[in-house]
Amino acid sequence: MAATIRFAGVTKRYPGGHDALVDASFTLADGEFAYLTGHSGAGKSTVLKLAAGIERPTHGTVLVNQQNVGRLSARAIPWLRRHLGLVMPDVKLLEGLSVGENVRLPLEIAGVDRAESSRRVRAALDKVGLAGRERARPAALSGGEQQRVAIARAIVNRPAALLADEPTANLDAAAADAVLALFRDFHAVGVTVIIATHDEGVIARHPGRRVVLDHGRVIGAGAGEPQ
C-alpha cells in the first residue's frame, strides 16, 4: 500500500508571523520517490510536518490518501501517523531502550502481539543490515547505524509512505549511500518515499523527482530524473 500526498495552496505561518510555507501546491503520487530540496529554512521540514499532522496549515489543504490532515481531529491524527514512517530529528531513538525495543515501539503502540512483533523487529533490523544488534544501546552505534535503526523503526509497521528529514545529515558519503539504498529498496516495493535534503551529492547519486522550495514557495515540482 502506498500513499498519495497532495498540497493545495498551503500556507504555514508560525506564531510570530514567519511564513514557513507560502501557497505551496504539488502532488506526490502513489509509490513516488521524491526529494524536497532547497536552502536551509526553505520550508522542507514544514512540508513533512504538515503531511504527518505535526503541524496544521494556516491556509490551504493537505491531503494524505484523500484525508484532509488539517481537518483531522486530535483523536484521528495517531491513526494517520501509524500509516506513515517518520525519520525525523524529532523522532529520536530513545536512549533508555535497546535497539530492538526502539524498533518495537510502533508495534507496541499498534497492539501487535509479542511473537509477531519480535519477528517483524528481526526482519526490519535484518533489512537495514543490523541483524543481531537488538540488545545494543543506540549510543553504542555509529551515526550511520543509528540512522538505520531509525529507518527500521519507520518501516517496521509497514507504512504507506516514508517521510525522512535530512536522513543523511552528519553521515559520510558511504553511509549516506547505504541509507539512500534502503529508501530505494522500500520504494521498489511500492512505498511512497519523500526525503527532505539539501545534499546535492546524494540527489545526484540517487536521482528522483524534485520539489524545490525557496523561502517557503514551491519553485519547481518537476518529474525529475527517471526512476
Partner: peptide, 10 residues
C-alpha cells in the same frame, strides 16, 4: 513525544 509521533493515542 516520540511515541506520539509514532502514532500513540492519548
Amino acid at each position: 513525544v516520540v511515541a506520539t509521533l509514532l502514532g500513540a493515542t492519548r
